[in-house]
């Protein structure tokens, strides 16, 4: 009997390939859809806050961050994730309307204090704009905003004119930025 179990032991020892992992020298191979630390594409995030709303543990907070796209993300608010609470459930990733939040293969998180494992947008962003690009985009945004304002003002004027023309119609409100 003992021999039999030893036979199996030997068989396993001889046929099974290496079992012990060489972590941390060699990380095990992770599958493609591993749910590890988040990766944020700051160039496309629109700052809608869907991810923050769906998170079951309220670990996402929207914080200001510079290197995003001011054209799409007017208030420049990006998610910051508290890994002390995150359960890596992936709901935030599913919920993101522009698919800019993903989960990557990095899984190691460590910090001396709790605040060290609160990752701001700068730490989870894998794609962001450089300072120069941001400045350009900002200028662009400003220009667009100005145009919009002008357009809005024009529209308002037109409306006002129309309203004056048709006095029987009740107060026409200038619709700010509506058509722009």
């Amino acid at each position: 009997m003992v021999l039999k179990s030893l036979k199996y032991t030997l068989k396993t020892a001889l046929t099974t390939t290496e079992v012990t992992r060489l972590y941390p020298e060699v990380m095990m191979e992770l599958p493609a859809n591993e749910r590890g630390i988040h990766e944020l594409d700051a160039t496309t995030c629109i700052g809608c806050g869907s991810c923050a709303r769906i998170c079951p543990n309220s670990c996402i907070e929207m914080v200001p961050y510079k290197y995003g796209n001011p054209l799409k993300n007017r208030k420049m608010q990006f998610p910051q994730i508290d890994y002390g609470r995150c359960t890596f459930c992936g709901l935030c990733v599913d919920e993101c309307p522009v698919s800019c939040l993903k989960m990557g293969k990095k899984t190691e998180i460590a910090g001396w204090e709790r605040k060290d494992i609160v990752y701001g947008p700068d730490r989870i962003a894998v794609k962001k704009f450089s300072e120069k690009e941001v400045a350009e985009l900002e200028a662009e945004a400003k220009r667009q905003a100005e145009e919009k304002k002008k357009a809005a003002a024009a529209a308002a004027k037109e409306k006002a004119a129309k309203a004056k023309g048709k006095e029987n119609k009740a107060k026409a409100k200038p619709d700010e930025g509506g058509e722009a």
Partner: peptide, 11 residues
């Protein structure tokens, strides 16, 4: 894990 992306808590 290769399907769900997590080892034990799959959601």
């Amino acid at each position: 894990e290769s399907i769900t992306g997590a080892r034990i808590t799959h959601t």
